[in-house]
C-alpha cells in the first residue's frame, strides 16, 4: 500500500490491527477441536476418559498419517487422491511377502522386517511415480493421482494374489494392537514421533521452504533456481512413505489386508483434515499441527456419531459442513 523511499523505518514497529477472522483462520482447527470436545463432553457418555482419548488416537491414526503427507502435497499446490490405494498396495506387498510368499518365484514367506521394508518401498515408489508424472510430464495432479487411485486397487490385488490375506495370530498383528506398558497404544508413540519429525521438517528444512515456494508461485520458484521437479517428486514420495505407515499399521491392527477396503475413502478424511487444519488449497505454508487437530476433529465427529448411536450417514453430513466452514474461512478476500 505504501511506498516510502524516504522513511523506511516509519512503519517498523507499527502495531498491526489484528482481525478476528484472521485469528480464526489461523486457529480454526483448534476452534473446531474445542467446540467438539465441549459438545462431546456434554452429550457423549464417558467421553472425558483416557480410554476415549486412546480410542480416538488409535482410530484416527491412518487418517492422520495420510493427512500429514497430504499437507505437504497441498502445500506444494498439488493434491493426492491415490493415498488410499497406496495404503492398499503397501499393505498387500507386506502381507504377500510375510504371509503367502511368491510360489511362482519359489519365494517362501520372509520375516516381518524385510516384508515391511518392501511394503514401505512399494508405497514410496507409487509416490515417486505420482511425482514424476506430475512434475516431469506435467500432467495435472488430480488426473495422475486419480489414475493411480483406480489402477492402484487392481495392482494391490495382483500383488496380494487374492482379495484378502489374514494376519490373524501373527506377530505383526500383535504389534498392531500392542500397548506399551499395557497402556499406551503403539500408534500413539508413532504419531508423536512422526508429528515431531514433520514439525521439524516444516519449520527447519530447506525442503519445506522450497515446497512452500513452489506452492506459492511455481514460476518464481523455478526462476530462483529451485529444482521444481525433484522437490515435487520428493513431496509425493514423502506422502507415499506416510501412506505406507498408515496402511501397514492399520492392516496389523485389524489383522487383515483386504485390498478392497484397506484405506478406502481415506483421501476424503485426509483432505478434510488438511482443510480444517488451515493449509491453503492454493498452496503455501504447511500447517502440521493444524492438520493434527484437523484429523482429530474429523475423528471426533465419527466418535460423536458412533457413541451416541446416530446413523453413520449423519457423520458424513456433519463432516461436510465442517469442511465447508473451513474452506469458507480460507477463501480469498
Amino acid at each position: 500500500m505504501t511506498s516510502k523511499p524516504d522513511a523506511p523505518a516509519v512503519e517498523t514497529g507499527m502495531l498491526k490491527p489484528i482481525k478476528a477472522t484472521e485469528v480464526f483462520r489461523k486457529y480454526e482447527s483448534m476452534f473446531f477441536f474445542v467446540v467438539l470436545i465441549i459438545l462431546n463432553a456434554f452429550i457423549t457418555p464417558e467421553f472425558l476418559e483416557w480410554g476415549t482419548l486412546r480410542n480416538t488416537l488409535v482410530q484416527v491414526f491412518p487418517v492422520m498419517m495420510v493427512a500429514l503427507g497430504m499437507t505437504m502435497v497441498i502445500s506444494s499446490g498439488g493434491i493426492d487422491i491415490s493415498v488410499g490405494s497406496i495404503m492398499a498396495i503397501s499393505g498387500a506387498t507386506t502381507a504377500r511377502l510375510y504371509v503367502t510368499g511368491v510360489s511362482s518365484l519359489g519365494l517362501e514367506p520372509v520375516g516381518l522386517a524385510p516384508a515391511l521394508a518392501c511394503g514401505v518401498a512399494a508405497a514410496c515408489m507409487c509416490g515417486f511415480l505420482n511425482g514424476i508424472l506430475i512434475a516431469k510430464c506435467k500432467i495435472q495432479p488430480i488426473i495422475v493421482t486419480l489414475v493411480v487411485m483406480i489402477a492402484g486397487r487392481g495392482l494391490a490385488q495382483i500383488i496380494l494374489g487374492e482379495l484378502s490375506t489374514s494376519l490373524l495370530f501373527t506377530s505383526f498383528a500383535d504389534f498392531g494392537s500392542l500397548r506399551i506398558g499395557g497402556v499406551i497404544p503403539v500408534q500413539m508413540l508413532i504419531v508423536v514421533v512422526i508429528v515431531a519429525a514433520m514439525i521439524f521438517v516444516v519449520k527447519k528444512t530447506n525442503f519445506a521452504k522450497r515446497v512452500e515456494a513452489i506452492g506459492d508461485n511455481r514460476r518464481a520458484a523455478r526462476l530462483v533456481g529451485i529444482n521444481t521437479v525433484w522437490v515435487t517428486v520428493g513431496v509425493y514420495t514423502l506422502c507415499g512413505l506416510l501412506c505406507s505407515i498408515a496402511g501397514n499399521m492399520e492392516a496389523a491392527r485389524i489383522s487383515v489386508v483386504n485390498v478392497g477396503s484397506l484405506g478406502l475413502l481415506v483421501e476424503l478424511d485426509a483432505i478434510a483434515a488438511v482443510a480444517i487444519g488451515g493449509t491453503a488449497f492454493s498452496g503455501g505454508k504447511a500447517r502440521i499441527m493444524g492438520t493434527v487437530f484437523g484429523a482429530i476433529v474429523v475423528q471426533l465427529v465419527t466418535i460423536i456419531v458412533n457413541m451416541n448411536n446416530i446413523p453413520d450417514k449423519y457423520s458424513l453430513l456433519f463432516k461436510a459442513v465442517i469442511v465447508i466452514i473451513a474452506l469458507w474461512t480460507q477463501r480469498k478476500k
Binding site: L133, V144, V147, I150, A151, G152, G154, L155, Q157, I158
Partner: peptide, 28 residues
C-alpha cells in the same frame, strides 16, 4: 512425447480397469 505418455497413462488405466473388473472378487 506428451502423446506417447498420454497413451501410456491411458494404457495403465485401461489395464487396471480390466484387472479390477475381470478379476473381480474371484481368482477362479
Amino acid at each position: 512425447m506428451k502423446k506417447v505418455l498420454l497413451f501410456v497413462v491411458l494404457g495403465i488405466v485401461a489395464s487396471a480397469l480390466m484387472v479390477s473388473c475381470s478379476k473381480g472378487p474371484s481368482d477362479t
